[in-house]
Write a protein that binds this DNA or RNA. Structure first.
Length: 500
RNA sequence: GCGCCCUUAGCUCAAUUGGUUAGAGCAACUGACUCUUAAUCAGUAGGUUCUCGGUUCGAUUCCGAGAGGGCGCACCA
């Protein structure tokens, strides 16, 4: 759509001028709304039948979403955040002057209406308009589809279907699609229930830097920016981890942060360059304790979302305890051989058999991980903890007690997707320095996802870092799982797009 | 990043093998209509067919390049 005024936009500007000429302010300052649409609908007693008197007086406000003019009467529907209610305007009740103002109203205008409720012949609760105010004139037509209800199912005709325009103009998408609003109401409920769960365990919510002089805590390419006054590069964080663990050193024994991480990577239906991450760390807990926390957290989130209209029906029933499988035995049993004992060439043969692309380009740890993804992860449907990862796949986790080839790490999978990643966190500064230095070597050799040595973080750890469990959960993906959504853009209000 | 597909009126979609003036529904505009609900009826108007270039007597259609988007694969959460 261009910004040039086409005939549709011109017609609305002309109505705007006509309203001003008639003494109507097309953009009001406020409205004394007394009822939401949903409240108003419940106020008319069911005993009130068509033709018998009138119910209580209401004052509602919202957007005009349907308009049916019949000469000297008009039926319309008004929608607000709670639902819709029908309006009825009569020329003989409003007078000619006020009734004529209605001819300058359009779908999309925001109005306030007051009058008594009554029931129409077809049984619908309706406001008999005694007075009405224009609150905001709509100068650009919203892409409303017409709706009809057949056998209880809403069928929408000629709606707003172009996915590109729906993402770019989310305001219009939300305005015409109540079910899209439901997704984001569910998102808000999810965040609230997470806070309430962790606060209830005496966790402290904190905010750590988004702009960081060094990035770390994950393997990813960062966004880089520059601070003018300091004349230095800064990176947008790829994870919260290292700052949260500094806080545990400082004596905050249970901390969490909900915030955006930024990764300079491709965009597809499960990746947005900025995404919402929950991380929480608990001193004196190990990964066993954290598994219990994750279980209870997810159950409480799912319960909270079940109360959201429409969306609630989709929420899967989560029944703890979740299944637990060990990484190495589950892989060996799926492959039918001892995978960790295989040589390079046997591993590459196995990779090809299970469908891994370009196994020749992959390092040994990466190969094994790919085989695991193909044979085990992708088959997991019910929420399942995979525990005890090989140390070569888990540079940030403490070695497993009694088996230093493994680490105390778990990931939670459901529907073949990773939902959470957690460790007994490494708190040995000497071991940590060695691991960071090997990362720095990889970075110097050109690995774009490797991080550098964070001396300040090591200093913090040297003061003494209590043992702790830590968990990271990607909240966009959690919401996708809970609401059965396949595209991450459908759970992010304003997903990253190229400029129009 | 690679492959396949899409882009036509404000919205949803048509248009035969490359052929006259690119059609329809909704929305808009004019008129009729005092219980309608995809309101109905009559009429009117609305187009740089994503952009640029090429082939052709003639391009929405065929070819090339570009832009934006969707899906799949790879990487990542």
């Amino acid at each position: 759509m261009t910004d040039d005024l086409n005939f549709v936009l011109k017609a609305r500007r002309e109505k705007l001028e006509a309203l001003k000429t008639a003494g109507v302010n097309p953009f009001a300052y406020s409205y004394a709304r007394e009822h939401t649409a949903a409240e108003a609908v419940t106020l008319l007693p069911p005993s009130e039948v068509h033709g018998e008197g009138e119910g209580p007086h209401v004052a509602v406000a919202g957007r005009i979403v349907a308009w049916r003019a019949h000469g000297k009467t008009v039926f319309a529907h008004l929608a607000d955040s709670t639902g819709r209610i029908q309006l009825y305007f009569r020329k003989d009740q409003l007078g000619e002057e006020k009734f004529n103002v209605l001819s300058h109203f359009d779908l999309g205008d925001i109005i306030g209406v007051s009058g008594p409720l009554f029931r129409t012949r077809t049984g619908e609760t309706t406001v008999r308009a005694q007075s009405f105010d224009l609150l905001a004139k709509s100068l650009r037509p919203l892409p409303f589809g017409k709706e009809e209800i057949v056998d209880g199912e809403t069928i929408r005709h000629s709606g707003f279907a172009d996915p590109e325009q729906r993402y770019r103009q989310r305001y219009a998408d939300l305005a015409v699609h109540p079910e899209v609003r439901s997704i984001f109401q569910a998102r808000s409920k999810m965040i609230t229930s997470i806070r309430s769960f962790l606060d209830g365990l005496d966790y402290l919510e904190v905010e750590t830097p988004v702009l960081q002089p060094l990035y770390g805590g994950a393997a990813a390419r960062p966004f880089e920016t520059h601070h003018n006054a300091l004349d230095m590069p800064l990176f947008l964080r790829i994870a919260d981890e290292l700052y949260l663990k500094r806080l545990v050193v400082g004596g905050f024994e249970r901390v969490y942060e909900i915030g955006h991480d930024f990764r300079n990577e491709g965009i597809d239906r499960t990746h947005n360059p900025e995404f919402t991450m929950l991380e929480f760390y608990e001193a004196y807990a190990d990964y066993e304790v954290m598994m219990g926390r994750v279980e209870k957290l997810l159950v409480s989130v799912a319960d909270a979302l079940r109360a959201v209209p429409v969306i609630g029906e989709k929420i899967p029933l989560l029944e703890p305890p979740f299944k637990r499988i060990e990484w190495v035995p589950s892989l060996n049993s799926a492959a039918g051989l001892d995978v960790m004992a295989q040589g390079e060439s046997e591993l590459r043969d196995l990779s090809r058999r299970v469908g891994v692309q370009h196994p020749e380009d992959l390092s040994r740890p990466k190969l094994i991980d790919e085989i695991f993804q193909a044979l085990v992860e992708s088959t997991i449907k019910e929420p399942t903890f995979v525990v005890d990862y090989p140390v070569e796949l888990s540079p940030l986790a403490k070695p497993k007690r009694g088996n230093p080839a493994l680490t105390e790490r778990f990931e939670l999978f459901a529907n073949g997707k990773e939902m959470a990643n957690a460790f007994s966190e490494l708190n040995d500064p000497i071991d940590q320095r060695a691991r960071l230095e090997s990362q720095a070597t990889l970075k110097a050799a050109g690995d774009l996802e490797a991080s550098g040595v964070d001396e300040d973080y090591l200093r913090a750890m040297e003061y003494g870092m209590p043992p702790m469990g830590g968990v990271g959960i990607g909240l966009d993906r959690l919401l996708m799982y809970l609401t059965d959504t396949v595209n991450i853009r459908d759970v992010i209000l304003f997903p990253t797009m190229r400029p129009e």
